[in-house]
Amino acid sequence: MAANIEPVLLRYLAGLFPRIGFGDRPGDGLTVVTAPADEVYAVLKTLRGDEPFLMDTLGDLTAVDYPDRLEVVYHLYSSACGHKLAVRTGVTKGAAALPSVTGLWPAAEFAERETYDLLGVTFTGHPNLTRILLPEGFEGHPLRKDYSLPPRPATR
């Protein structure tokens, strides 16, 4: 049964990466690690491979469009240690780019493509970062809040 990650491990992680913040989020009370965009890959790499964490399962990867930033959220699980954790990082809307985590979790391939497609986050180093749900040549990223829906064609 996946429980929240032990606070001692979080303090250890904070020792490795002093710039990260952590806390339990309101709602489901899941522990969230907030990392700056330039450090998030290193944090994820540590969480994926290093001994006390071993977050071997990427549950979900998506992004949320907040007024000031795009926030990419990773939900991680460890089948070996039985703990769970969310990692989030904010990127600026104009140049939303992050390193791809397909090298850490191959399962991220489709999720990153979807996030790129619908929210316009570029994942550098992704093997095939193309639109997945929307057609090629589609303008814009519909899940962004500023995306305006095209007017309905007049029906008769």
Binding site: R25, P26, G27, D28, L30, G59, D60, T62, V64, D65, V73, H75, A86, L143
Partner: peptide
């Protein structure tokens, strides 16, 4: 109330997860 939830269940096809961000309004923010 404002907050986030990620809830996963075992569907016939596998792990179905819902990630909902609430801003306290009647509609989900994400």
């Amino acid at each position: 109330p404002p907050g986030e939830v990620y809830h996963r269940v075992e569907n016939p096809r596998g792990e179905l997860g819902f990630y909902i961000v609430s801003d306290g309004s009647a509609k989900p923010y994400r």
